[in-house]
């Protein structure tokens, strides 16, 4: 049994170690930040040292060539509406599936779960064909596609969570004569908040950062696609590409920092119960 004093001391040692590890951990990100404010020549000659001359030229170039405001807006549209739709359709479906005991609902549930292991490459070409047939090859068009693609994981996670939610409340509401929609949106949905937070976060990260589907369906104009302006096979401009990384990652990092508390709770809730 160790004395409280030594326990405290070992905590301080641990803290020091963890801070060191954390610094190494985010060093690559700091490295990019450091280089984004240097002129191109300095990056090539002294990539490690701190900037001697500060420049915002890289950010200006990244901002204009990426058409940053438009790209940000497009990405935000896709993410907001995409996630909202996934939440809506999946929570409704998962609740009904979890609350109906029948072979059909079980089969449907399995059908959803099955999709989680399908590699995107199998459906890639057919889905592009589908996007033209349904006139969905656009920023707005890709949104319903995400509803369908995001449904399996969301249904799976909601389903697991709903099973742990007591039925009494909704039964009481039903007896009071409330309609099913009222019961769902007023009684059940608020109870699902922890898992909803989890799914919002997972899907927001996914949609914001998605590359392949926008590349073949939307073609251009999202943050991930526009970043490639500076970093391709025949052209590699380190300064502007570092700046574009920072510009594109900043919104999602702010989103993360704002919702950090919910994220950790949400993922925890979703993971352990789901």
């Amino acid at each position: 049994m160790s004395a409280p004093g030594s326990h405290k001391r070992s905590l301080i040692v641990l803290e020091a170690i963890m801070i060191l590890v954390a610094l190494i951990w985010i060093y690559p990100a700091l490295f990019v930040l450091n280089n984004a404010v240097k002129p191109e020549a300095d990056i090539k000659l002294h990539p490690i040292s701190l900037p001697t001359t500060l420049t915002i030229a890289n950010f200006i170039k990244a901002w204009t060539e990426m058409r940053f405001p438009q790209a940000l807006l497009n990405t935000a549209i896709i993410t907001v509406f995409g996630v909202a739709g996934i939440i809506l359709v999946s929570s409704m479906a998962a609740w009904k599936l979890a609350r109906s005991f029948g072979r059909i609902s079980w089969v449907l549930y399995l059908l959803f779960a099955f999709a989680m292991v399908i590699p995107f490459q199998i459906i890639m070409v057919p889905i592009v064909g589908l996007s033209t047939d349904l006139k969905l090859a656009s920023v707005w068009g890709i949104i319903p596609m995400y509803w369908g693609l995001g449904a399996p994981l969301a249904v799976f996670m909601y389903h697991g969570f709903v099973k742990g939610v007591p039925r009494e409340l909704e039964e009481a509401a039903s007896i009071d004569g409330a309609g099913q929609f009222f019961v769902f949106f007023r009684v059940v949905f608020p109870l699902l908040r922890p898992i909803t937070a989890t799914i919002v976060i997972l899907d927001a990260l996914w949609l914001w950062n998605d590359f392949l589907l926008p590349l073949i369906v939307v073609k251009a104009g999202t943050l991930q696609l526009e970043q490639l302006h500076f970093y391709g096979m025949f052209l590699r401009e380190y300064g502007p590409s570092a700046a574009s990384l920072i510009l594109s990652a900043t919104p999602i990092v702010i989103f993360y920092l704002m919702l950090q508390k919910y994220i950790i709770k949400g993922i925890a809730a979703g993971a352990v119960k789901g």
Binding site: M124, V125, V128, G129, S131, T132, A137, L215, I216, K219, A220, L228, H229, Y231, G232, M233, F234, L235
Partner: peptide
């Protein structure tokens, strides 16, 4: 005329679009 760049594997993306009619 809007410009559409695919900096890497341009042909892969172009075939995918050709096949899909885009």
């Amino acid at each position: 005329i809007s410009l559409l760049i695919v900096p890497n594997d341009a042909d892969a993306t172009m075939s995918a679009r050709a096949a899909a009619g885009t």
